[in-house]
Amino acid sequence: MCDTCGCGQTNNPVTFNKPEEENEPVQHDHSHGQPHDHPHDHSHGNVIQIEQDVLSTNNLLAERNRGYLEAKNITTLNMVSSPGSGKTTLLEKTIQNLKKELQFFVIEGDQQTMNDANRIHATGAPVIQINTGNGCHLDADMINKAIKNLDVADNSILVIENVGNLVCPSLFDLGETYRIVIISVTEGDDKPIKYPTMFHTSDICIINKIDLLPYVDFNIEKAKEYALRVNHHLQFFELSAKSEEGMDKWYDWLKSQA
């Protein structure tokens, strides 16, 4: 143990005080001036156990969102996918065809532009655009602010179109009722095992653009098999938002949620 500076004394941390202060501890300088002839540990510091989940703030806020939305009987869908899978087209068609039966509110997430919000606005559904700037995902705090701003009605359907990204949004609970992952047949059928975290955390998988199946190598059964390996509980919808093939089952499911 070093009597000069106190290092190595586990319960007696090094203190730094000015000379004029009471009980003057030694001003601490590691070039001690005099050589030591004994070995000692120069690593300082007290170890304080924290044991705090890194995403705890987001998760708590997500639960607050969930409670608020449940109390108002709002079914909330968090739509996640790669860019270009057809989320916005699917949403446009869904709102156009169901708006007489269901009330939709939409939160759009993109790095930049109002393009998607403008498309949804044209359908008549109230919409708010979140531009994340450089951000690669939406988080619960953004949704909390957007819900307040959007004034979502009781007994409605709130759709959150997340930033097009199959990796990052998977870690951020928003308080949704269902997470819906969308893949299109122009992508590889091994997407579920290439990006398993997103498929693992989703409830529903929509396979979009099935009108293009004759022109691409996408094997729909293989894609479903891969997805089920990652998540046994996934429910599938195979459809084309463009040709509207397969949309009826999707609409029936949505209506059953209201």
């Binding site: 300082h44 007290n46 170890v47 924290i50 705090q52 989940d53």
Partner: peptide
């Protein structure tokens, strides 16, 4: 797991 376990401070 994704958590801050401990910090070493002075």
């Amino acid at each position: 797991e994704l958590r801050v376990k401990a910090i070493k401070i002075d």
